[in-house]
């Protein structure tokens, strides 16, 4: 349990530290709010519109491919940990099949121009 206590305390401290620093150093700052100063920064131009616009996320399909490959690469960890204790020919053959499927998916994505930045 102690291990997880550390993780919890580190998370809480890491989150509180910046917030407390921002609040705690407020006494040595002055604040003059001003509508021009508080506008969005657009290189000195008067900002037009909002940043909340319909935005073309060019890597939407990249993100899907990422999800697939990331999960598959996590599957490799348990295999890698026990690799030296397995019957190696068999373990190697199995991972060859696994990686072949992975690479087939990757080649398919490449041929379908999923991996081309648009």
């Amino acid at each position: 349990m102690e291990k997880y206590l550390d993780i919890v305390i580190f998370t809480v401290a890491g989150a509180l530290f910046p917030l407390l620093t921002v609040v705690g150093t407020a006494i040595i700052r002055r604040r003059y709010p001003d509508p021009v100063k508080q506008g969005a920064y657009e290189s000195g131009e008067i900002p037009f519109g909002d940043a909340r616009v319909r935005f073309h996320i060019s890597y939407y399909i990249f993100a899907l491919a990422f999800l697939v490959f990331d999960v598959e690469s996590i599957f490799l960890y348990p295999w890698a940990v026990v690799y030296l204790h397995l019957s190696r020919g068999l373990a190697f053959g199995e991972i060859l099949v696994f990686v072949a499927i992975l690479l087939a998916g990757w080649l398919y994505a490449w041929k379908k121009k999923v991996l081309t930045w648009m």
Partner: peptide, 24 residues
């Protein structure tokens, strides 16, 4: 000591908490 100003259109929750989330 620099002035701490908040952009007018910001989503305050996200904007305030982002540095904390980055530091954790």
């Amino acid at each position: 000591a620099k002035e701490d100003f908040v952009p007018g259109g910001a989503d305050l929750w996200l904007w305030w908490l982002a540095p904390a989330v980055a530091l954790v």
